[in-house]
Amino acid sequence: MAKSIDVSDLNIYYGDFLAVEGVNMTITARSVTALIGPSGCGKSTFLRTLNRMHEVIPGARVEGKVLVDGQSLYDSAVDPVEVRRMVGMVFQRPNPFPTMSIYENVLAGLRLNNKKLSKSDADAVVEKALRGANLWNEVKDRLTKPGMGLSGGQQQRLCIARAIAVEPQILLMDEPCSALDPISTSAIEDLIHELKEQYTIVIVTHNMQQAARVSEDTAFFNLAGAGKPGRLVEMNPTKKIFSVPDEEATEAYISGRFG
């Protein structure tokens, strides 16, 4: 089910401004890849190109290739809505739909795709997704209650359940723990370890310890200065990045000398 991603010569623009330049990387299926680097270096911008959310911004565009199992995401014949179903996204702040119950939040993506479900099928999808997000036991007796009534960590796991309910192959996570307390962060990290058995996961994080804990590979992004494009400086197995990185700039960032 999970798929690999190959990125080659990727340039990302906002209008005429080149935001990220010349990214080449391979993201392995059924693994966690962490994107690290200082604020403003293009990590989240790059992440959004992997499910074509970048182009939703007026004037935004990309050059280069993003292939998922050999299929170009940006081929003219490819439906961006289908891409976003295949490549799920979890955002920095938990964003359950405020007017919806926990139950309806989980089903929101399927409803958006006009998928007709019987009550029994819907029940099965909700339970499977909530179990997959390690949330079922906490909410099974209050599925009709508002999703916004959950704690922050539970809301984020509800958003993960919503993302996996549509059965994507890839999960993108943009700083999913930055708004959470340490206990909720630990729960999300445990969940990431479980999810990588089924999904390819790419996570943006500013937390070096988190990157070291959850990922197999780490990509370090940086930029030469204000107004310059972000670049991929180095991508290597996480153990190597955090012990003997190839680039001096990577070592300087990880050791806290800048950023």
Score class of each variant (00 low, 15 high):
1 M>C: 15
4 S>L: 08
6 D>G: 10
6 D>N: 10
10 L>Q: 01
10 L>C: 02
17 F>N: 15
17 F>I: 13
19 A>I: 00
23 V>I: 13
25 M>A: 06
25 M>Q: 03
26 T>W: 11
30 R>C: 03
31 S>G: 08
32 V>A: 05
33 T>P: 14
34 A>D: 02
34 A>V: 00
35 L>E: 08
39 S>A: 12
42 G>K: 02
43 K>M: 07
47 L>F: 15
49 T>G: 03
50 L>I: 09
53 M>N: 04
60 A>Q: 05
63 E>P: 06
63 E>F: 08
67 L>N: 12
69 D>L: 14
69 D>V: 12
74 Y>G: 06
78 V>I: 11
79 D>T: 15
84 R>F: 03
86 M>E: 14
86 M>P: 15
87 V>Y: 08
87 V>W: 04
90 V>R: 03
91 F>T: 10
97 F>H: 04
98 P>F: 00
99 T>F: 03
102 I>M: 07
104 E>V: 01
105 N>F: 06
113 N>G: 12
113 N>L: 08
114 N>T: 11
124 A>W: 11
127 E>S: 14
129 A>P: 10
129 A>L: 09
132 G>I: 03
136 W>K: 02
136 W>I: 01
141 D>V: 00
141 D>Q: 06
142 R>Y: 05
142 R>L: 03
144 T>Q: 14
145 K>Y: 14
146 P>I: 01
153 G>C: 09
157 R>Q: 09
158 L>Y: 05
159 C>G: 09
160 I>S: 08
160 I>R: 00
161 A>T: 10
162 R>N: 05
168 P>H: 13
168 P>A: 14
174 D>A: 09
175 E>T: 05
175 E>G: 09
176 P>Q: 05
178 S>R: 11
184 S>N: 10
184 S>E: 06
189 E>Q: 13
191 L>A: 07
191 L>Y: 10
197 E>F: 13
202 V>M: 13
202 V>L: 12
204 V>Q: 02
206 H>S: 01
207 N>T: 02
207 N>C: 05
211 A>D: 07
213 R>I: 07
216 E>Y: 06
217 D>F: 08
218 T>W: 08
219 A>P: 01
225 G>S: 02
225 G>P: 00
226 A>L: 15
231 R>T: 14
234 E>P: 05
237 P>V: 00
239 K>D: 00
241 I>F: 14
243 S>D: 04
245 P>T: 07
245 P>H: 12
250 T>M: 01
254 I>M: 10
255 S>L: 03
257 R>I: 02
257 R>E: 07
258 F>R: 09
258 F>D: 00
